[in-house]
Simulated assay, not measured.
Amino acid sequence: MSTAALRVVPVQTSGDLRRFVDLPWRLYAGDPCWVPPLKKQVRGALDKKHPFYADGAADREIFLAWRGTRVAGRIAAITNRAHNAYHNDKWGFFGFFECEDDPEAAAALVEAAAAWVKARGCDTLVGPMSPSTNYEAGLLVHGFDTPPSVMMTYNPPRYAELLEAMGLVKAKDLFAYASPVHPKSLERLEKFADRTRRREPDLFIRSVNLKEFSNEVQIIREIYNRAWEKNWGFIPVSEAEFAWLAKDLKPLVDPPLLRIGFIANEPAGFLLAIPDANPALAALNGSMANPIRLLRAMLIGRRRVGLRLITMGVKPPASDHLLRCPSAARVLT
């Protein structure tokens, strides 16, 4: 670790914002499991014009840790007023955390984030949230030997140690499950789905209609906000923010993989799976501006290597098995 003086300062210039966004490319150099994000999307999530921050619902400050003339780490401090109003608490959040193997720099970054949210009335610091549970959330603590699926977090093993050394403790376990698809499993699932459809004649499930995408998004948003209302960390997603999220996901949407369920013609549940775009994303190396990388990514993207089940939900009082099983069968067959 360098002995150069350490300082943590807010990002105030376009040059420092570029350094903030670009830092992971140096920290993860040579790591075969890291998938570079699109820099445009990172900047978008930090831009206060993003609907996440609209109407004072949230605010943020981003910091760089400097060791002399070298950037050693970064962090975002986030206040989410919508979260605190919904859950009646005083949480502040941190996200976009990246750091060299430098405990002093990591501590200084967390302290800066904690001080910033405390000054705005928060009594607890929670993270990583980049910037909320509707985006990348959590810290990877197991599974460092495989690349993440699309929209899944990834970080070096040392991050848990750096953050726990600051006194941070686990708030919640977040699990990701990987499973191969076996033909016999699909047969059993389809049989169960058929029985469910016969037992529930008012149940109707269809694929999303991309020609009516805006209307479909509103249907899914209404289901999502009802289905997830009691989940840990959830806050209702505004119409503008949900539209923003949907716009980002639309290029990855394959209609048979986005299913909406109705009971007596009333929206009741949905399931969204998307092809795992991370192999193609890795080829882009953070930008779609390079035509050679773009062509390579398009060729890689034609080879479907797996699916990621992004989210699903069933509105109360519909039971989970009523819609999940038929939807999953239709997606996978």
Rank of each mutant, 00 (worst) to 15 (best):
D320S: 09
G261V: 04
Q218E: 15
R199W: 00
A178I: 06
A273L: 15
L271Q: 11
F262A: 03
P201S: 08
A160C: 08
R303W: 11
E241H: 12
W232L: 05
E136L: 13
A105L: 06
A119I: 05
L252A: 12
Y154A: 01
M166K: 09
A297P: 06
A277E: 02
L109Y: 02
L322K: 07
A137Q: 07
R199T: 00
L174A: 05
L17R: 13
E200C: 09
D89E: 11
V305I: 14
L189W: 03
R18V: 09
S214I: 11
H83Q: 09
Y135E: 12
I219G: 07
V305L: 15
P37N: 04
E212A: 15
L281E: 00
N80R: 05
E222A: 15
D89A: 06
W91R: 13
P267Y: 08
P201E: 04
F93E: 00
A289P: 01
K40P: 06
S214N: 14
K49P: 10
L299S: 11
P51K: 04
D89M: 07
A268Y: 11
D202E: 12
P183G: 07
P291V: 11
P180I: 04
M152D: 00
P317I: 08
F96H: 06
V117D: 01
K90V: 01
R195Y: 06
V21L: 09
E136P: 09
A297H: 02
